[in-house]
Design a protein around this nucleic acid. Structure first.
Lengths: 248, 248
DNA sequence: CGCAGAATTGATACATCTCAAGCTGGGTGG
DNA sequence: CCACCCAGCTTGAGATGTATCAATTCTGCG
């Protein structure tokens, strides 16, 4: 395999791009110093597996840059993505040794890692961390429940539109803007990974993308870059309440 | 509406049936006294709505007895259940005022409630509570991810078998036994609620139940009581790894 | 007894899957 | 430098699992 060199900067916590949103968001200067002492970075390139389901995982981590997926696989090969980790999201469960899912870097990825034991120790002694972790976990549970509605009840077209809206929103969030009007972004997933996310086949994903394109809801630049002329039109295709999400 | 009287006992924390598994599981005697001071019970009968999505909710609670569902509804009426709360499960998010989902008592239900503000205060000052809440939330996230695999990738028959296995396991847990060999339990949901849980129509639920019955995997006593002659045979129908779940 | 809600069963429609054949673009070796 | 190659993607035709629409049949209860 060709070995591209990944050259993400190794930032100090003080100017870390996820400083204000990650698990360390509420830490004071002295707490941050403690974290700084036990942290280290890992980089992966697009497509690499971070850990296999069942393997032991000796660290937990924050996603600094890039996107990682959590995927479950059945014996006969059916796959379902169950988590999509974007910058500032937290990976791993401090109290658990074995990874329950495959973790895959779907784009080039930088993790800020902490060995499990010292991190568990900090959780026990630093309310700012455990409180933030609880908050983030509750947010993730909310997201999982939205996702369940998508998987259980939405049509293929609604699934695709919802996925595009989610990515557009998270992308805007990272850029410190709001998704509205004309919007453009890069897909962090292949068609196959999108299918695993949405509980569809990759052919159906492809067909529905083409259909949204034909109907002028989106246009493509290459396979990965998406342009949405009017974000509200995309939202109309998601099946969600027209208000609901805007303020949330 | 007829008004049956619900007569659940109002227990002291000391002999509460969920004492060792609920959010208060790790509390010391003095912490328990603090909780005891702010707790109160609410009872609901099967079918009653506890809160509507969007309503403000001035309490959080532990399920003491019975079963409650969290359900999301789309504008056009499509419904997806996104949470099923059994005894010891926690309801509500301390930091959130408005309920994001409909909460419905699917059986007669007893809640042990705490007003939000004092409870939030206890979370901030009592690590035993916030740690336990984090642990429970992470468990719920795991369950949500299993559920996502079910919704996205399993067949109707596998969905039904998986649901029955989940209920049998949770039921056994409450009875302090292990689900294996011959197993019997009551369904806490109507066919329609099962359909909302599984992302199916009620007709498909009914057909698949009949099919499992025809094949001798289960038998029915009335509409609600299920008998499973051999739990392993049921597990074979779930599509899950044959090992995986037994020890988990 | 008869009603109403819950569940079952049947016939048909349709969305998505499956299998199969091309297309496309970027990288590589001749 | 060009032709080839291959992974990722698109498109097509047909199969199939589940939804939909429509009767019945249970079951508990007033």
């Amino acid at each position: 395999m060709p070995h591209r060199q990944l050259a993400f900067p190794q930032s100090e916590c003080a100017d870390c791009p996820i400083r204000h949103r990650a698990v360390c968001a509420r830490c004071e200067t002295d707490e941050l110093e403690q974290l700084e002492a036990i942290k280290y970075y890992r980089n992966y390139e697009a497509g690499q597996t971070v850990v296999w389901a069942g393997d032991s995982m000796d660290f937990v981590a924050s996603v600094v840059r890039g996107v990682a997926s959590l995927t479950q696989t059945m014996e006969d090969g059916r796959r379902q993505m169950v988590g999509l980790l974007l910058p500032s999201d937290f990976l791993g469960r401090p109290s658990r040794e074995k990874a329950p899912y495959d973790v895959i870097a779907t784009t080039d990825l930088q993790l800020c890692c902490f060995r499990r034991a010292p991190f568990q120790n900090m959780i026990d002694t630093t309310p700012h961390i455990s409180q933030r972790l609880l908050e983030m976990t509750l947010d993730e549970l909310d997201a999982a429940r939205e996702w369940m509605l998508l998987l259980g009840r939405k049509t293929a077209r609604e699934k695709i539109a919802s996925f595009l809206a989610i990515i557009a929103r998270r992308d805007a969030q990272v850029q410190q803007t709001i998704a509205q009007g004309e919007v453009g972004f890069d897909l962090p997933l292949t068609r196959e990974a999108m299918a695993d996310y949405l509980g569809l086949t990759l052919e159906t994903v492809s067909r529905q993308m083409s259909s949204l394109k034909r109907d002028g809801v989106i246009s493509l630049e290459g396979k990965r870059r998406i342009l949405v002329p009017d974000f509200d039109v995309l939202l109309d295709e998601t099946g969600d309440d027209s208000d609901g999400g805007v303020l949330a």
